[in-house]
Design a protein around this nucleic acid. Structure first.
Lengths: 227, 227
DNA sequence: CGATTAATTGACATATATCTCATAAAATTC
DNA sequence: GAATTTTATGAGATATATGTCAATTAATCG
């Protein structure tokens, strides 16, 4: 077990089997983030979860099944948090910029989940679609308002999200700094046809601090700090 | 062994050991393209190459070594072909557009190599740098000429190549059609600050048919056509 | 052609992964 | 607290991968 253990935390008041399952899912997040989907093994996951090998198969048929479960749960949570962070933003240009920046902030604030999200989106196409479900609507609104001068189709949306995802990747690997969200949002707005000065202003304008509504993210307490 | 076998073809006049090594490298390309780097096994490669397991270890220390060899050779060849295809294109806007489109055309014309290139660039960062080595210069030239209104830094270049690479990925997976190169080039030019109408014109203008100079790409003859 | 060198082979030792299942431990019920 | 149900265990059967090496086959040379 490492760091956050969000699933375990969520399941802390449920029955024993739910808690064990959650432990396995947290462990899977760690292992997938560290080793990648392919290289990860059930043994690594059970070791990380501190349960016996056989326990895994009580809860999941195989690696694919836990991977799917983890991926969909993470995507679901991220979409939820993203929705919450977007409440009150109505201007199309701001919404598009905000979504990219918030997603990056979210995914990098808990890097293991970010890694898992990245890999999950890579593998499960429908997940990508759900993470960016709001995007198409915002883009179309911008076109209707005349601020975006580009045709909204699958190709555009794929390219747009590839820009976000590649930034996430570089952010998680330390190749990009905290302003990466703003930088890529700026490029995305330019691509959509927003005037350069407006793109810069919107992409770099300060974001409200996030007010978490849904899942309580446990923080390390000072006393339990590691080395 | 499948389809193209470019390495084998290149080595056809060399000694036996060079030919066997080439067989292994072609097989590796196939297997990596099919199974991905992680999932590929030495056994699969030797089976595809129709040699015994032990033969592999005569030529390569392990999977990593052949992967590196293959990746660098492919990147080298692609850069070479790309250079050839860019000769005579001098305008910065055209060069940037042309490079993206040519790279996509090249990589999709031999899909297994395209897959391998995609995976290689993913894993070996310096390869990505070599494939896009010309890019920075062209971008800076465009800025000097006043046609690009964006700051040229690592972040921009990474994002730019992510757009190309994600298009390659979708192209190889049949999610994008033959015009994908033009579509993404258009978006890239817009992002760089080129006026939308110019971006469209340049990205969609006809390209000269490629005149191959360097490595002879063997074509399937009609009589050896499969089913 | 016989001798020498180069290239190839596949069985084998080792390691690690998957998934099952009889059994044990823990939790719950009455 | 005994009985019952739920949960967890880890040894083991099966499979597949890696890398080595003595032996075999193919190529070359004088």
């Amino acid at each position: 077990m490492t760091s956050l253990d969000l699933f375990t935390h969520e399941a802390r008041n449920l029955g024993k089997s739910a808690r064990t399952k959650a432990r396995l899912m947290d462990a899977a997040v760690s292992v997938f983030a560290r080793d990648g989907f392919e290289a990860a093994s059930v043994n690594e996951i059970t070791r990380a979860a501190e349960v016996a090998n056989g326990t895994f198969y009580v809860y999941f048929k195989d690696k694919d099944e836990i991977a799917t479960a983890v991926a969909y749960r993470i995507a679901h949570d991220v979409v939820q948090q993203l929705d919450a962070a977007m409440v009150g933003v109505s201007d199309a240009v701001e919404r598009v910029s905000c979504a990219t920046r918030r997603l990056l902030d979210l995914a990098t604030s808990t890097p293991q989940w970010g890694q898992a999200l990245f890999r999950a989106v890579w593998i499960y196409n429908d997940l990508r679609d759900s993470v960016i479900s709001y995007l198409r609507a915002d883009l179309e609104r911008g076109v209707a308002q005349g601020v975006f001068t580009v045709e909204i189709d699958d190709f555009l949306i794929s390219t747009f999200s590839a820009m976000t995802m590649s930034t996430l990747f570089r952010r998680l690997n330390g190749e990009a700094g905290p302003d990466a969200g703003s930088l890529v949002a700026q490029l995305q707005l330019r691509m959509l046809g927003v005037a350069p000065d407006v793109a810069k202003r919107v992409a770099f304008q300060a974001l409200e601090p996030i007010t978490l509504t849904m899942p309580v993210i446990p923080r390390e307490t000072d006393r339990s700090k590691k080395n």
